[in-house]
Simulated assay, not measured.
Amino acid sequence: MNLQRSVRAIATASGNGSGGVDWEAVATAAKSAIGAGALELTDAERAGYAADVADARDRLRSVGGLNFDIPPTVEVQNRHHWIDANVATFRRVMAPVESEVNVAFPTATSVFNTGSMAAVLSFLASNVLGQYDPLLLADGDDHELYFVHPNIVEAAADLDVDYPRFRRWIAFHEVTHAAEFGAAPWLSTRLEARLEGALGTLSQGGFDREAFRDLNTTMTAVEGYAEMLMDRAFDAEYADLRRKLDARRRGGGPVMRVARRLLGLGMKRRQYERGAAFFRAVADQRSVAAAAAVWDDPANLPTDAEFDDPTQWVARVDP
């Protein structure tokens, strides 16, 4: 950790003279603010990650009734690797906004924007356990899967749970996202269209409420279905893992809670909880496989009212 280097990178951010984000400085500052974490994997650990992903794929196919494959890229990373991967993602997604925005004080704005992004990425890199990345707005149709090994090891110790079992449960969660996007080829296109619309409106000083509302509804389905399916498909006891991880999402000290609120992680937690309650109700009424009808067609996504009354969705979709 080198906080002086982090501050220097932010203070000298250029943003190409436009007031945009200096992404090279973001990467430098974020990585200087936190340690990379240990990534000395034993042969058994490498084999464990591979087995967890493969077993999750097979179980999710069987229990969920989904046709999908795992991403071509599966990486076990440290925190700095994760930052590099996500700088590329943020840079790609924010490009339309940066190219359109004009500011009165570009240098000061660039320093602020660069510092803000570095703070966000360093915070997330310290906490994220795994990530399925559909590579939205990227060329091609590849997708990637990451596991942040030092965070998984530390979280297992903090939660006082068995590390291999916890690692496997995280693998099931992330592979479930791969299952969703693999089973619904239209999902990436829908999210990209809504994201482009929302960001385009923001770059013009407006706010597209409908685009953000649709993004929230879609992500509530994505997160909620993943929560339900990972629990139903996991091949070991998980009640203690669910209880402790849910507490971790809500917990932390005052600084942690403020940071989560500022980053919108409270909204993400509500997406998990609301969506999971919906899909658990559907799975209980019909079956786990029947709930997968949500990915057959964009029209099958639950409406806001249906999230609160799953019987309406069952009657409409009739899975």
Rank of each mutant, 00 (worst) to 15 (best):
A33K: 10
A221G: 13
R165M: 04
D142F: 00
R92T: 15
M228S: 13
A290V: 09
E273S: 09
D69P: 01
Y163V: 13
M219N: 11
E174A: 00
D284I: 01
H80R: 03
I10L: 12
A9L: 02
G253H: 12
G206D: 10
R260I: 04
A289I: 13
A47K: 14
L159Y: 11
R249P: 01
A11N: 13
R57M: 08
S99R: 11
L191G: 06
R274V: 10
L135C: 11
R316T: 13
L41A: 08
L262Y: 11
G182Y: 15
N102W: 14
G65S: 12
D208W: 01
E237D: 15
Y146L: 03
L195R: 09
P106S: 03
G264Q: 14
G275A: 01
M1G: 10
V288W: 05
R61V: 13
A119P: 03
K244E: 07
G140R: 01
E192H: 02
K31W: 03
R167Y: 09
N151S: 03
A155M: 14
L229W: 13
A236Y: 04
A36Y: 00
D58G: 03
R248W: 07
A236M: 01
Q131C: 03
G182K: 12
D162I: 08
A259V: 06
A9V: 00
F181C: 02
L41M: 12
Y238H: 12
Q271F: 06
V222D: 07
Q204L: 12
R79K: 14
P134N: 06
I170Y: 07
S122Y: 12
R213A: 10
N102I: 14
D208G: 00
A289S: 15
H80A: 01
T201A: 05
A305Q: 12
D309C: 04
E196R: 11
L202E: 04
A289F: 08
G35T: 12
D304M: 05
G224M: 10
M230L: 07
A36P: 08
L159T: 06
A104Y: 11
F68C: 03
A277T: 01
N113R: 15
Y49R: 07
N127W: 02
E196M: 10
R57W: 14
A247F: 08
P185C: 01
P319L: 02
F181Y: 14
R57L: 15
D318F: 02
S62D: 14
G15D: 00
A291T: 08
L60P: 11
R316Y: 09
V26W: 07
E45N: 11
P150V: 05
F181V: 02
D231I: 00
L229I: 09
A118P: 14
V255K: 06
